[in-house]
């Protein structure tokens, strides 16, 4: 089976039966392909964060099924913790969850909960730390002495150390400088490549999506608006602006050029694709 995670007719309602009732997800169907990076994008309040909490069983769907490797994760509610080790969730602003005395201990928290041996834990902690770019000199410091970007990495390392089959990240780059952004998102790419695991990335940034993802799911008003490969989604970029989303900068440039009568061909949603397209175009003109 090529789908690692699947949502079937999943609905989620907050405060059911009270005047504050709110439908956060309405009959959502999504398949996440094994070994791929899938981007989840949508306006604020479109249901992205709720969806993320359903994936590892923090919330239970009001109706519908969440299938992990074809098995409903709520078949055995007592084993939901095992699901959480397999679907690693990095929440928004994960640096607020740090609590232990040293970075080393904090990254190993999940592994200790899992009941692994000390030797194995320290091995995995070092591996996860390297992965997210935390130097060995930081491992014995208190997490509260680190900078914001470093804290973020420690928190992500704490999930990566579990070696989840699916790594889910809710806005992992929010509030970081461009360099921290590139580094964190880049390490996700290598995670998928090295471990063969799947990554689900929630983001607001179209550029990030275009750059790092294979597939994209667009959410709007508690429903799936569109899903497909990056190329499929961004080739109709104007449609996205109709649901309140920003389109990649290069797509905007391409649109203006088209208005001026210059038609480019190719992947116009990344800087590289745009460059090639422009070079091709100018080459043809010179001929």
């Amino acid at each position: 089976m090529s789908n690692i995670l699947e949502l079937k007719d999943v609905s989620f309602v907050y405060s059911e039966g009270t005047p504050f009732r709110k439908v956060a997800l309405n009959k959502v169907n999504i398949s996440f392909e094994r070994g791929k990076i899938t981007g989840l994008i949508g306006h604020t309040g479109s249901g992205k964060s709720t969806l993320v909490n359903l994936l590892n069983g923090l919330y239970k769907p009001t109706s519908g099924q969440v299938l992990l490797d074809g098995v409903d994760i709520w078949d055995e509610p007592k084993k939901i913790r095992d699901v959480r080790y397999r679907v690693g969730l990095v929440m928004q602003y994960p640096e607020y969850q740090l609590f232990d005395e040293t970075v080393r201990a904090d990254i190993g928290f999940a592994l200790r909960n899992k009941g692994m041996s000390e030797g194995e834990i320290s091995e995995r902690v070092i591996e996860a730390a390297r992965f997210t770019g935390i130097g060995d000199d930081l491992l014995d410091k208190s997490p509260f002495d680190l900078s914001g970007g470093q804290k973020r990495r420690v928190a992500i390392a704490g999930i990566i150390a579990m070696r989840p089959d699916v790594l889910v990240l809710d806005e992992p780059a929010a509030g970081l400088d461009p360099r921290g952004r590139r580094e964190i998102l880049g390490s996700l790419h290598s995670y998928a490549e090295m471990t063969g695991g799947s990554v689900i990335l929630v983001s607001h940034s179209m550029e990030d999506m275009a750059h790092y993802c294979d597939n994209v799911v667009v959410m709007n008003k508690a429903e799936v608006y569109k899903s497909g490969t990056v190329r499929e989604i961004f080739s109709e970029a104007e449609e996205l602006s109709s649901v309140g989303l920003d389109i990649p900068m290069t797509s905007k440039v391409a649109k203006r050029l088209l208005d001026l009568g210059i038609k480019l061909e190719g992947d116009l949603y990344t800087v590289e694709g745009m460059r090639d397209a422009i070079l091709r175009y100018t080459g043809e003109v010179e001929k």
């Binding site: 959480r84 607020y96 232990d100």
Partner: peptide, 30 residues
């Protein structure tokens, strides 16, 4: 924070009284 720690396998509702009190540390410190 409870959800974040649950995602790392923390268990707030099972175990002996001492275990449950200990499980609160990762919640209370942050």
């Amino acid at each position: 924070i409870m959800n974040a720690q649950k995602s790392r396998g923390a268990d707030f509702s099972n175990g002996s009284l001492v275990e449950r009190a200990k499980a609160l540390i990762p919640l209370l410190i942050p």
